[in-house]
Design a binder for these strands. Structure first.
Lengths: 235, 235
DNA sequence: TCCGTGACCAGATATGAAATCTGGTCACGG
DNA sequence: CCGTGACCAGATTTCATATCTGGTCACGGA
């Protein structure tokens, strides 16, 4: 049983427990016990409890971005904000950790949100810039309208995401709209608000042209995320 | 100093303290002291602390709807969802109690949210139905698109509102976009997502035709709210 | 030598009993 | 008849004690 395997097992157990119990209630002792390692071993790999859970969260985000990349490579129109958010929304529905992240679930994440904001300022800022450049590229290729300032489009996009993501939790009790349908409504809304409609053919062609640049952006960001994950571990 | 004046002063003081201190920290004693009445007097007017603060919240909502009605009567296009939400958003920014309500601010509202949900189920359901009928009327007059089910449009509308309203708080720290501009972006987004664009002239004419029906809806709802406020006081 | 380990420590957190506070009542008096 | 504030029970706060947990490090096995 080598270093790499240990590390992976600890991460996995930490992720499971984070969801099942929530940050505060999970102890390093319990993680070590379930991963069948000594408590000290956890600290051989991560400086602090926060660093460990930050790694968990970053990995989930990384995986989400990877799926996003797969979709974009397979089907260029997936670079459109509407399509992208639909994918992210589905991931969001399927991945409880993502759900906790995007809805700021204090019970699950505990103080992790604050730590993340402090620790990942740079990465968050980079994500911000990347999204703006993403929109910029799409505008250049006529896929996104230019009737609004890019910053304002980004603001609108973030607000819509926030609304559909958190509204998810606010729908509590009766759920009159199926998840699939909600995803489509989100896509429809984002499309109407930001994108152009030059017909399916033209869209596909423009998307194919823009795709490499957008994909490069996300690959670059994924790399940064990976780097950040590695930065959380010792040595 | 008559009954009515007393009641108004208590409500006013309660509203001020709710904002300044938050539900939990406000005591009936303090309200009575500031309103210069005996503690028992407060209970002559409202059955419970919850009823009193529910009245505060309902009144703020009522006033917001009244302003909405004034706008709609003065300028029919204000019945459009985009215009309506812009108005509501500005009210939201200017009225801290509204802000607390829409963002579910637990620190200010305390247990009031839960009480409200339990106590005002009917009113909330009525608001829900009213919004749907509002959208229905606009669709009949060609002001709102029919490329989506009404329920789904309502869902989208709620999600957008949620996003822009709560995102407000999530913008913490730097605020790169001015309030006025945010309101316009919200209006622009809602317009793009739901409404038709038959030109300003045609819109104005259709709006003028639809306005009476929509205004009647909101008058009816205001009446219900008022009724609910009265239901909170004794006798 | 090197890596994994668990006993150990200090500070954070949980516990619980006593003290205080507060929503709500009601007998009194103006 | 209406407004009042002393009063009560239950909720909340306090504070001291006990327990727990993140993080370290000296040790021992490979």
């Amino acid at each position: 049983m080598d270093r790499v395997e240990r590390r992976a097992r600890i991460l996995e157990v930490a992720g499971e427990l984070l969801l099942a119990w929530g940050y505060d209630r999970v102890t390093i002792d319990e993680i070590a016990r379930r991963a069948k390692v000594g408590k000290g071993t956890v600290y051989l790999h991560w400086k602090t409890k926060d660093a460990l859970f930050l790694a968990v969260v970053l990995q989930v985000q990384f995986q989400s971005h990877q799926r996003q990349l797969v979709r974009m490579r397979a089907d260029p129109p997936e670079i459109l904000p509407s399509r992208m958010l639909r994918g992210l929304f589905c991931d969001f529905l399927g991945q409880p950790v993502l759900r906790a992240m995007y809805t700021d679930d204090a019970d699950v994440l505990g103080r992790l949100n604050d730590t993340a904001k402090r620790e990942l300022t740079e990465l968050i800022g980079e994500g911000d810039r990347m999204l703006r450049r993403h929109l910029g590229v799409l505008r250049e290729h006529g896929l996104v309208r230019d009737d609004l300032d890019v910053h304002h489009q980004q603001y609108a996009l973030m607000a819509m995401a926030t609304g559909f993501f958190t509204g998810e939790a606010l729908l509590d009790g009766r759920a009159p709209v199926a998840p699939e349908v909600r995803a489509d409504i989100l896509a429809h809304t984002v499309h109407s608000a930001l994108e152009t409609s030059p017909g399916e053919e033209a869209t596909a062609r423009a998307a194919a042209r823009a795709a490499p640049e957008v994909i490069a952006l996300y690959e670059q960001f994924s790399e940064l995320t990976l780097h950040e994950i590695r930065r959380q571990v010792r040595d």
